[in-house]
Design a protein around this nucleic acid. Structure first.
Length: 896
RNA sequence: GCCCGGAUGGUGAAAUUGGUAAACACUGCGGACUUAAAAUCCGCCGCCGUAAGGCUUACGGGUUCAAGUCCCGUUCCGGGCACCA
């Protein structure tokens, strides 16, 4: 064998072997347990970045590990190929998004191949191909039939200069990214999927997802946000001529609250700018009309809504409190959303932080109605069944001067008339009952989750299969005319959807009446594409069905791996989609992903400049000079060409921020095995990783040492092994036994860590194994046999991480033909036994030394040895030992 | 602002889930080999102290024989917030 480690040759040969033997091409096989290992497919942005290498190496380690454990392993790959970056590239370079996307796919596929992933490429798919997105359209039509999809209005970011809808990402500080114009909210029609119909099931089934991280389930549960509250109405007789002179909303202003216990503290109501009461009042109030107009500016993002200055204006209208009968003034608030609940809220300044700030700002009354519980008396004794506790609310600590978080806590009702002294739960029951008696309210379950708006006013996406006819309205495209194919030669210019200018796409005859009609030009949210690709991979390739029977063999996905940034939206939409497919009779399973590994983000610094008029211009690190302090912390950055001072942020690697690090240079210089090993060694998978290539050399050095040990083993050690093997049952010399024990202990730890999916310590276990192997006794047949066994263990543990070098050494050193076919190693109990153990000796919790005892020494013996230890005597300073704690196999702590 | 995470030497990190803090590496320093360089190998490397020893897991409290790990409060950093994917 070659004495130098030449990764390029080794990797080419191994990949050739896997290709020639179709090693990763799989089909359904009921005789073996299956393992469907899926990594989130990449957006084809141009080049792989380190986040991809991390994601796909994790998937590959798990795939190869399970393959060696005897599973029928499916690991597919494809492309999340529709989306905004292709349009941005088109604007910049005048290249059609289709060409840009397909070119990127070709390049990135070759990069993935060079990393040696065990992928079944025969199942590759790209979501921008008609044979894939046809089924988006097909199932969308089924959802329309079932009433799961519907058309209603949506609020979007509108750029008044470019006359186009902006994605949230394209809105920076409330302005359009290209024009710098202040963004407006605009209502337009669009299609929605009723994910809220599945809210209960999506929440309830989280309990079935034992293989998901708790934090992801918690995030999803909070997102779905089930809350039980009370929906009730304030009565009024505000009439409007446009309403035929009748009272607006039947004379009821509906609101929803989760804190009905504070209802007696209501001192105002706030409605959204688009609320009928606001519009009514604005007719005779130019100031209010102007305020309502102003509320239309700004973005639709929740984060912006939550952090903006809360402003309001009184309408001069009053409504009647249903329980006190008092008049309550109605305000218009810029923080109240028409699209959420009834577009109105009750204001309780004393017990809600936002209402408190609003009331202070506008001089609205603040009335305390909740107070901390204070015990005022007990009758009887603890044994007395008639025992009574008496309490009241303690109002001493309340002040209207400044908000305190404790004001929002649950307590006892005060200043609430008949409800005084009730707890929150009792009060909600009593108040809901009283409201119900008047028929102006009831308990209601409210969800935070909103329906999923899938219409996008963009070109590079899946066309929504609808035809608009003047006579027949919105008509679904008949199934036999699917797919509605997206023309692939358009070049967007940033000023709206280029499909509007495509006469050949636009004009079509109405399928119902045959008259000339117009195609829908909106395309689908790209989350639609990624909501079911896992099921398509598992379907017979090219099947003329959305999914076929094979999907029921492979699904559900046994292990899903992807970035934590997808914890809510993508994963929730996929779960929803699976349930819809089940209800349409397409699949048998109800959850798509059994186990989820949420990979931590790979972060890198991004450098940007904010030009006048808004937006952020990002620069590549090669374009700038970076200033650092003595500790290596970045203190500033300037643009090389003109010295412009730049800002910087630590953030996830992305195409749009020019901060992605391409792994290509790493692979070319060191090889795929080094890149993979280093990536796994750098940090545990779930942890955020700040990118740095310091340490790549170390990984490369390690693999070189593995190779040269292999060479020494093959040429000097292995030849010592006799014809008759002697290892089984042999009594080994102490040094040899200790070495063997060390390897088997490391194997035990590595297997444990693989179970925990903590691959960085698996990598360090392999390094420790090599350190031990290099120092192991080498002379004699017995030593050679032990080394053969232990090096074989190292190669197999290493193989999921660095498959190429492991493949080459395994075959060349005669361990077998194919390491993938070898059985995964398990530690031998016989190799692990130990006569003596070392226990740490603590005196009063501080480490003072250690004691060696027989592995099976009873507690008394250990105590006796510890108590007579010189350090015990020294640090007890003559005091008697009050207590001795023995933790078997670990330590002795003497308390005195 | 709200929801979810994270913070350990100069650096990436480890700690078998409450029981030796810093394993394994990177960097740096010193040495061997070499005409020389590279590669390789050996040694040292948390802070204070000559030592004995003391201190140390973002910060401040608490529980415990024992806390990086559990509880309470705070700071900073990251992810998500529904049209980036």
């Amino acid at each position: 064998m070659q004495d130098k480690y030449l990764p390029a040759d080794i990797e080419r040969a191994a990949q050739q072997y896997w290709d020639d033997s179709a090693a990763f091409r799989v089909s359904a096989d009921a005789s073996r347990p299956k393992y469907y290992c899926l990594s989130m497919f990449p957006y084809p942005s141009g080049k792989l970045h380190m986040g991809h290498v991390r994601n796909y190496t994790i998937g590959d380690v798990l795939s190869r590990f399970h393959k060696m454990k005897g599973f029928n392993v499916l690991q597919p790959m494809g492309w999340d190929a529709f989306g905004l970056p292709a349009e941005n590239a088109a604007i910049k370079n005048q290249v059609p998004p289709a060409k840009w996307t397909y070119d990127n796919i070709a390049y990135m596929k070759q990069q993935l191949k060079s990393l040696g992933f065990a992928i079944d490429w025969s199942r590759e798919l790209a979501t921008c191909t008609p044979e894939y997105y046809k089924w988006n359209q097909w199932i969308f039509l089924r959802m329309l039939e079932k009433g799961i999809a519907e058309r209603k209005t949506q609020v979007v970011n509108w750029d008044p200069v470019d006359q186009t809808v902006l994605a949230n990402e394209q809105v920076i500080d409330g302005r359009g990214w290209r024009t710098g114009a202040v963004v407006e909210k605009r209502e337009i029609p669009g299609y929605y999927l009723k994910i809220t119909d599945y809210a209960d099931e999506l929440l309830g089934d989280l309990d079935q997802l034992g293989g998901w991280p708790e934090r992801v389930k918690l995030m999803q549960a909070n997102w779905i946000g089930k809350s039980t509250g009370v929906r009730f109405a304030f009565k009024h007789d505000i009439a409007d001529a446009d309403n035929g002179g009748g009272p607006i909303g039947d004379g009821k202003l509906w609101v929803f609250t989760t804190r009905a216990d504070t209802i007696m503290g209501v001192t105002f109501c706030a409605v959204a700018a688009e609320h009928p009461l606001a519009l009514h009042a604005a007719k005779s109030n130019p100031g209010l009309a102007a305020f309502i107009e102003k509320c239309k500016h700004g973005s639709v993002m929740e984060a912006d809504m939550a952090t903006m200055e809360k402003e309001g204006l009184p309408t001069g209208l009053y409504v009647t409190h249903p329980l006190t009968g008092k008049q309550v003034e109605v305000w218009v608030g810029n923080y109240v959303l028409m699209s959420y609940g009834d577009g109105a809220v009750m204001g309780v300044p004393a017990h809600d932080e936002r209402d408190f700030a609003f009331a202070k700002k506008y001089g609205i009354e603040i009335k305390q109605v909740i107070a901390p519980i204070q015990l005022v008396g007990i009758t009887g004794t603890l044994q007395d069944k008639e025992q009574q506790l008496y309490w009241k609310g303690n109002t001493d600590d309340f002040s209207v001067d400044a908000w305190r978080p404790s004001y929002a806590e649950y307590g006892v009702l005060v200043n609430s008339g008949a409800y005084d002294g009730l707890s929150a739960a009792q009060a909600v029951d009593a108040i809901a009952a009283d409201l119900a008696a008047q028929e102006v309210g009831e308990k209601k379950v409210q969800w935070r989750l909103r329906d999923w708006g899938i219409s996008r006013q963009r070109y590079w996406g899946c066309p929504i299969p609808i035809i608009h006819c003047d006579s027949c309205g919105s008509v679904p495209v008949p199934d036999d005319q699917l797919p509605v194919v997206l023309p692939e030669d358009c070049v967007p210019d940033g000023s709206g959807n280029p499909l509007h200018k495509r006469e050949d796409f636009l004009h079509v005859d109405c399928p119902k009446c045959g008259k000339p009609a117009r195609r829908e030009t909106d395309t689908m949210d790209t989350f639609v594409d990624s909501s079911w690709y896992y099921a398509r991979y598992a379907t017979t390739f090219g099947a003329d069905k959305m999914v076929d029977d094979e999907t029921n063999y492979w699904m559900t996905v046994d292990q899903y791996i992807g970035g934590i940034e997808h914890a809510i939206l993508h994963l929730l939409y996929s779960r929803f989609w699976t349930k819809v497919m089940r209800d349409l009779g397409l699949v048998e399973y109800r959850e798509p992903f059994a186990h989820l590994l949420t990979q931590g983000m790979v972060l890198n610094n991004a450098f940007f400049h904010k030009p006048e008029g808004g937006g952020k211009n990002y620069f590549w690190e090669s374009e700038i000079d970076i200033q650092k302090d003595a500790k290596g912390q970045i203190t500033g950055a300037t643009l090389k060409k003109d010295g412009t001072v730049l800002e910087h942020e630590l953030t996830t690697m992305s195409k749009s921020k020019n901060n992605g690090v391409d792994p290509q240079a790493l692979i070319e210089q060191y090889g795929a095995d080094t890149a993979r090993f280093f990536m796994m060694f750098a940090a545990p998978p779930e942890q955020t990783l700040e990118w740095s290539d310091a340490g790549v050399e170390g990984a490369y050095r390690f693999l070189r040492r593995v190779w040269s040990f292999g060479h020494v083993f093959g040429s000097e050690i292995r030849p010592q092994i006799g014809v008759q093997r002697q290892l089984a049952g042999a009594k080994l010399p102490e040094a040899l036994a200790a070495f063997r024990r060390e390897i088997h202990l490391l194997l035990k730890q590595a297997n444990y860590d693989l179970g925990k999916q903590q691959f960085n310590t698996v990598a360090s276990a392999t390094m420790k194994m090599l350190n031990a192997l290099e120092k192991a006794p080498r002379e004699g047949a017995l030593a050679a046999e032990v080394i053969e066994e232990c090096f074989g263990i190292l190669l197999r543990v290493l193989s999921p991480l660095t498959p190429h070098i492991s493949h080459a050494l395994w075959a060349q050193l005669g361990y077998g033909d194919d390491i993938l076919a070898a059985a995964w190693p398990e530690p031998l109990e016989a190799a692990l036994v130990q006569d003596e153990v070392e226990l740490m000796l603590q005196v009063n919790g501080k480490l003072r030394g250690s004691v060696r005892v027989a592995a099976d020494a009873p507690k008394d013996t250990i105590e006796a040895v510890a108590l007579t230890h010189e350090m015990t005597i020294k640090f007890l300073e003559g005091r008697p030992a009050k207590k001795v704690i023995v933790v078997p196999g670990r330590l002795v702590n003497i308390v005195g």
